[in-house]
Design a protein around this nucleic acid. Structure first.
Lengths: 216, 216, 216, 216
DNA sequence: TATGAATGAGAATTCATTCAT
DNA sequence: TATGAATGAATTCTCATTCAT
């Protein structure tokens, strides 16, 4: 680091951005664990290690805090989705890659699932009120469209595949298994989160999706 | 029963049963609309048109009331599933029928979806504590097993199809679409609950499931 | 007490009317001492010796409690005014009696003055929302009209005296002295509430009012 | 001041004075609209367009700020009263002029009324703690004394008129009408602030005051 | 069986005030 | 002089639950 570089304050005590980010993470965890109704502002403050008043200072109230969490959550998954580079892959490989990504993202971010459930319990009014609506649009649908078109062009994919339906199906196959894993585990009396079970599920989903699109 | 036995107050009993049933319905609606954390005992009493104290008289507390609602909910879907008679149908037809049933049941009982979400948010501990655990087991898995076996026997189905995986996939394809319909509608900017959209979804799901199991 | 007389419960523990009345008195005192903004729901509960939650149970919120206090306050002064029987008195005597009554009521009910001040600070919106609006109308204006007419008929009073203006003036002469007694005492450096000062004030007000209406 | 004295930062000083004045005005408006208990330091800062911290820098705390506002308020009305030059007027004319001035000042400065009400709600303790106590004394009492003496001397006024009582009566006639205008308007169902109503009130008040003092 | 009255613990939000720069 | 960040102590209001009949 050269002399002219301004000192980077490793840990600034009074940093609005950092405080806001800390609150958002704490809130995300609390909301995802307890839902909007069950979340406690006190616990969020405690998790963040910051004064409860500060939450209101930056986020107005519980509802808007939840909205901010949702926006951040969508922002994050969209960023990850953007990183996927599937255009140069063979259609079949690209599709499999996309199923794997979806599965892995949900696995790595269980809070995403519960937050979405909460958002839907409240009829997505927090998204409706969001100004960052653009960020909601997933690039995956366009990627899918491209993959489908290339697959049909090279004769490997069947015709009449709707990218939105396919997107919802890919997501749904992972989502239901992971989001409802507790009730499913109770019903089936086995641990759905065991490594072996997870591998089997991924394998099955790829079979389902590819079995559907591939021209036999 | 001897003559000296005092007459059973049938009216009373019926009233008691009716009150409990009324409370359960009110509670189911409240829990499904607001989740466990967001539900209000006051509102449940109001919905039921009964005194709040009575709820505690019959159901002890909020947690146990939620548990009773879950049990009742599972009981109901299992009853409906039992009515399905697929053994005499051709495997492909039977499978299609099962996809349709699942879709229609979720459509007709949106409270089922939100209640399951709530149950999972709480890691299904309400089911774990339930004495009526047997009722959790869906007969559909066995039906599926039978269908798959018959399909493989007559050569129409591929091999290596796991009935549990297939069950989860069939449910997931419907579940995700309907449970997350608010956020999906917001993202895609179109009404996923429009009749045409619903028909298209059902058609797509049948294609996916059958495309997967049918030997090409 | 005969056997047939139903027992009068001297002190019932659970008595909705009594609790509401107790809360209203406590609230009246708190609001009159601290104003709407300075009043504390906690203190009202403490003054009433009842649970804070009960206040919300009966009166919804602080605003509506204040409104109920205002209604009760007006109700009370109107009742007292109704008891005044001036029709049979000579006009001059009747008018003097009315000045004395106003003065004495304000002296005996200092909370009336501060509550009216609070009501006006909030632009009387609590009265505007009141359903008991009829009770607002003071019978004094009609009494005054009668007195004025009789006085003019017997030639003792001057002409052109408006009863509303006269009512406001009679009230204003007492009100300002008593309501602003603290600042006035500070300014003049003397105790305006001393018995002698009070007597002198009453005497002066009668002189002013009668000096105005009496034909000289 | 010697040449070596560093230059007085006039701009700075003026800014400081201006900031204080701005805060005082903002505080006066806030206190007069909401009372001491209902006033918010945040809103005062916002109204002033200055940082909240600055209010504390200049005025210590809310109580002292309120006191400063009261002092400034009294200071202002005393200044205006000082400008009245009644000594050269005929007693009757001077008295009428004084009634008009009081009425007009209250009309032009409605905040004066509500601030006085707040001061009295708090038993004038803010005035008792004021160092600028001299400013509390109204010159009007002395003016009145002079007018009364001249009126009695020239035979136009009756005897036994106490200047303090008369001062309080003149103020009270205006004060009650204007301070309680919201509740009175609600009771009488008419707009007491309409120009015609205001003119009639002023006319009535002059009649009352002069009817009292003038030897008939 | 059924109910209106009552409550303690808690939860969201507010507020005057202070910190650090 | 001026300011944005931060806080502890309230304060209003809520909620599940119990009391007394």
């Amino acid at each position: 680091m050269s002399k002219s570089t301004p000192p980077v304050p490793e840990e600034r005590l009074r940093d609005a951005d950092r405080s806001q980010a800390t609150i958002l993470i704490a809130a995300r965890d609390e909301f995802s664990e307890h839902g909007l109704g069950g979340a406690r502002m006190d616990r969020i403050a405690e998790r963040a290690g910051l004064n409860k008043r500060l939450i209101y200072y930056y986020f107005e109230d519980k509802e808007r805090l939840f909205q901010a969490v949702l926006e951040q959550t969508y922002h994050h998954i969209r960023e990850e989705e953007d990183k996927l580079n599937l255009v140069h892959l063979k259609p079949e490989v690209a599709l499999r890659r996309l199923v794997e990504f979806t599965w892995q993202y949900y696995l790595d971010h269980p809070e995403f699932l519960t937050l979405l459930n909460s958002a839907n319990l409240h009829k997505a009014r927090h998204l409706a009120q969001s100004d960052r609506a653009r960020e909601l649009n997933s690039p995956l649908v366009h990627m899918l469209q491209d993959i489908i078109e290339r697959g049909q062009a090279d004769g490997s994919f069947r015709g009449g595949v709707d990218p939105v339906q396919l997107y919802v199906s890919i997501a749904g196959l992972s989502y239901f298994y992971l989001s409802n894993n507790h009730t499913l585990s109770a019903i089936f009396g086995r641990d759905l989160m065991a490594p072996k079970a997870l591998n089997e599920r991924l394998s099955h989903m790829c079979d389902v999706i590819l079995g559907y699109v591939l021209r036999s």
